[in-house]
Design a protein around this nucleic acid. Structure first.
Lengths: 347, 347
DNA sequence: ACTGGCACTCTCGGTCAGCGAGTGCCAAGT
DNA sequence: ACTTGGCACTCGCTGACCGAGAGTGCCAGT
């Protein structure tokens, strides 16, 4: 019947537990939250909630603790994302304002998230599946080596050195480099990675016998750089916060740290967001497929310039976390970073 | 008198403690190490060692544990760096072989060190105080923006975007860019950072009124990049190993993680090496100036191409660590990385 | 449908005894 | 002058026990 009240009770349990980190009993509940009923009634509701699997008693005579499913219901139906104070907003923008390049943006973002939420922050580097080549620069180095600089539209830069097997320091060499430079940029500049890769391969065949070897060397290095660049990266901060919340993970902190070093699985996790790119995604405890992270929750959100959601960021903390404010922080930071990328992508 | 034997006893204590992690008593000692004397004699020696401050009894009736000073004596006088097995050497070279660029070298190195020593690995990015500018490239972006790419002789690349306030897409613009490019490279290419910075500033004054604003914008961004690039960075791996060795740090793991996030202080630490660049430096427990790291030891060594020791790498672990093998690993990796940098530096 | 009451169950903290490892010191042996 | 065996002593650790406190489930009453 009073399903409403049951949910109120659940919410109260979650809230209390989150900030005392102790199992909460019926008596304490009615005292702190002025629900208009007695402890005995609450006990009945609790029994039902337990049947539904939303809460759980660690011991016969202890209070109740929310289960992962309980938290799920809480975030889905019982809480609203708490808006940040204007002070917090200002802090965010000030902190990110001074970033000079993409690395710096990511670096600042991850630190900011960690200190804001006092949890472990995870930021994925902008994924470049949709990246385009902005420009490719060739710089002769020494007699026969050539440094290739690949500039991506997101502002990232990748470089490689190849040996062309040709003398580049004389007039002929300079002409060769300059011809390679224009021809390569003609087919690749402004073009998405995947397309650029195939175009470049074709370019080799269209090259004179004489210069084909050089062109081939350059193109193959570029091909490497293109996939390397597509390979995604994450940056972490705030691992120390795990230790602070040590009470929550009796002895699981080791596995958690291990899981955090597996950047590949982290990336996969971040990749699986909810449907709506503009919504914060929450993965709670055992919902999480990664061994080692099953006592933690991941709050994440996509970000990126324009309508493209190029990457994700988020924080990882104990399942017993303050979801509303954490979600608010993550959302705010994701939006702000997106804005910054928008501005820089400008033109 | 028998100072020799006292030291043998100390060595035995260190060795036993390192691998049982329990205070070691006189009886256990004579059993495991066949010193030719009885437990009582060992007890007398222990009493002396304790007076000298080299060992310490946690409780009146517990065994002895080496103090920081005890470890110091051990590494300085009682141990030899254990040579690595050929298998380990091969593993190191294979693991580092496939690196494609500097970032990759550093990344692989830090992971390798962590898994080799099962401790926290710290690798400083090659310091660039002695770096020179290899080349500076200017790439027009959009109508008035210019991307500046700074290529350093170590292979690092830094980029900046500035607004020149001029139209660059027409013929005039292209001419401007190309003139800036040659003039800048004329004064800066091949020149050490510090010199380049001043040369470039002078260049502004020598520029025509008309182009001075554009030149100024570019030079100021370059100046930023030069200091930014000189700012040093570290990379970590293997934090999870801290948790594994949790027995050693009862509750100090939190502060340690915090200290590890303070990259600035880490850099300072790594900077203070011993005198001989070719020697492994060991800083034990309280010898360590950083709060939070006083229950840990740092084993580090410089590395770099040629005779220049451009940066350091090392591992951080409990004071109770296996110094001989750890030192061996650190030394081997540092040397190998130096070799790689040598090869790559070759024109 | 809610509430008060009651018996019951557990955990937690404190105390206490026994055990075992290890020490310090002394007197005897080489 | 060292070394050694012996012995009394000190502590920390473990397990048992106990009482207190918190919380529960259930039942009967409103």
């Amino acid at each position: 019947m009073s399903e409403d009240r049951r949910l109120m009770v659940l919410r109260a349990i979650v809230q209390d537990y989150v900030h005392t980190s102790e199992p909460v009993g019926s008596k304490a509940l009615v005292e702190r939250h002025h629900l208009g009923v007695s402890a005995a009634t609450v006990r009945n509701d609790m029994a039902l909630l337990e049947e539904e699997g939303l809460i759980h008693a660690p011991h016969t005579s202890a209070g109740r603790v929310p289960t992962d499913a309980g938290y799920r219901v809480f975030v889905d139906r019982l809480s609203a994302v708490k808006p940040l104070s204007s002070g917090e907003r200002r802090a965010i923008s000030q902190f990110l304002e001074g970033a000079v390049d993409l690395d710096d943006v990511v670096d600042r973002t991850v630190r900011l998230l960690a200190s804001l939420t006092r949890q472990v922050a995870v930021v994925q580097y902008p994924s470049l599946t949709r990246s385009t080549v902005r420009h490719i620069e060739l710089v002769p180095m020494g007699s026969s080596h050539l440094m290739i600089v690949l500039i991506v539209n997101t502002g990232r830069v990748e470089q490689r050195v190849v040996d062309t097997g040709r003398v580049l320091s004389d007039a002929d060499g300079e002409a060769l480099v300059s011809s390679l430079r224009t021809r390569i940029n003609d087919v690749a500049a402004g073009v998405p990675f995947t397309v650029a890769a195939t175009q470049l391969r074709r370019l080799v065949d269209e090259t004179d016998e004489a210069d084909r070897a050089a062109m081939k060397a350059v193109v193959s290095a570029l091909g490497d750089a293109l996939v390397e660049e597509r390979e995604e990266r994450v940056v972490l901060a705030g691992q120390a916060n795990l230790a602070r919340a040590g009470a929550d993970f009796p002895r699981t902190i080791g596995p958690i740290l291990e899981a955090l070093e597996e950047h590949v699985t982290l990336l996969r996790l971040l990749g699986q967001l909810g449907d709506d790119p503009d919504l914060v995604s929450v993965r709670i405890g055992s919902e999480n497929p990664v061994t080692g992270l099953q006592s933690t929750s991941l709050v994440s959100m996509g970000y990126g310039s324009g309508s493209e959601r190029v990457a994700s960021l988020g924080v990882l903390g104990p399942t017993r976390m303050d979801y509303p404010t954490t979600m608010a922080s993550v959302r705010a930071v994701a939006r702000y970073v997106s804005e910054i990328l928008d501005d820089n992508a400008g033109t």
